[in-house]
Design a protein around this nucleic acid. Structure first.
Lengths: 199, 199
DNA sequence: TACCTTTGCTTAACGGTGTTAAATACTTTA
DNA sequence: TAAAGTATTTAACACCGTTAAGCAAAGGTA
């Protein structure tokens, strides 16, 4: 009986439709506004049928997370394949990582817990950039008393901030990093960047 | 009539109670499980009265964001005050920033959109660390053909990842950074770290 | 063909969310 | 005391994820 196969093919088809409908919603309205009922509407079913394909909403998100990581791995391998020297490969790979984060921003947000709707973050109030001004003040002093007095404060500040904020995020989201390693990286990064200023 | 003042004092008191109740809930159960009704329960009122003090839930979160930034600024200034040399000040300030992020993790998450509940991120599946293995492979090759063959791959990988992930997060959450600046920082960081490997 | 079982799907419901409008209770003022 | 104003609650709306019950069509079996 070939109908069995047709049926499991149809089931597979519905699962696929769920995923593409969900993805469409996310692309248009963001993760925050993805709901089971919306997905069901889009595929012209009612919400409960989704639970025949995914245990719950979380499972659906996990599916996308997996897809995201495969997608990213794909990009990384492609970037690597374009060069022969490890140094060049590494450079290309990190640029590929960077591009992936923005071209597939929805994936990246889900994969690494980057919340975008938390407070319409884009600086609600002037005080929200207080750290920036406080740090920049000190960085400027350091630049003034250095050998290259026309160094860009902003650039140095963002370099500091990026590495430390990044390390923090990694530790908060994927908890259980080695503390010694963290401290080493932190110290290395800070002294390293300071050295690029003092020259 | 002094009763007017007593009344505005009581109003202020309720607002304060709302904030402390909300904070308690967040500390105990995380941002995800903070709800207007829970806050109301804690202060022995019903949900709608909160709207007399905050326009909506978002406004309440914005209030906490502000508090967080002031708190952080406080820590930074204290750290700065402990040293005289700008280089030492800067170092102390970034360590203070780091400590703030973990000691006041709830603040930090809200302030910078670090989602922790998105998928119980702590590596659901082996494939979730695919980028790590792909990168580490190339980094190892680079180390092998370098002058310091006992460099820690893991450390270098996390250093790369931190700075790039951090820069990405900053750009996603606080959109509208200068693209040239991003590219400069990105390129500088990558070539800089590669240089620390090749020696 | 008639019956029974299985399957696919929907409806209804539970408990939760943020938020608003109407109703009630209380206090102040005239 | 009556009217006005304010504080607070109740009820409701429109969502959310999720589960259980009901229904209708299809399949197998006698």
């Amino acid at each position: 009986m070939g109908s069995k196969e047709r049926i499991i093919r149809q089931k597979e088809d519905v699962k696929c439709k769920i995923l593409t409908a969900a993805w469409q919603i996310v692309k248009n309205e963001g993760w925050q506004s993805l709901s089971m009922r919306k997905i069901a509407d889009a595929i012209e079913y009612t919400a409960p049928i989704i639970y025949g394909y995914f245990e719950n909403k979380e499972a659906l998100l996990v599916e996308f997370t997996g897809k995201g990581f495969q997608n990213l791995a794909c990009h990384l391998r492609a970037a690597k394949a374009k060069h022969r020297l490890p140094a060049k490969q590494l450079e290309a790979m990190w640029f590929a990582y960077w591009n992936f984060a923005f071209e597939e921003q929805e994936y990246y947000q889900l994969m690494f817990g980057v919340e975008v709707n938390c407070c319409e973050m884009g600086m609600n109030y002037p005080e929200d950039d207080l750290p920036g001004t406080i740090f920049s003040e000190v960085i400027q002093q350091l630049i003034d008393s250095s050998n290259n007095p026309k160094t860009d404060v902003c650039k140095k500040y963002y370099t500091f901030w990026s590495v430390i904020h990044g390390l923090i995020c990694i530790n908060i989201v994927r908890k259980g990093q080695s503390d010694e390693l963290n401290q080493e990286i932190l110290k290395d990064a800070i002294t390293g960047i300071i050295r690029t200023i003092t020259g």
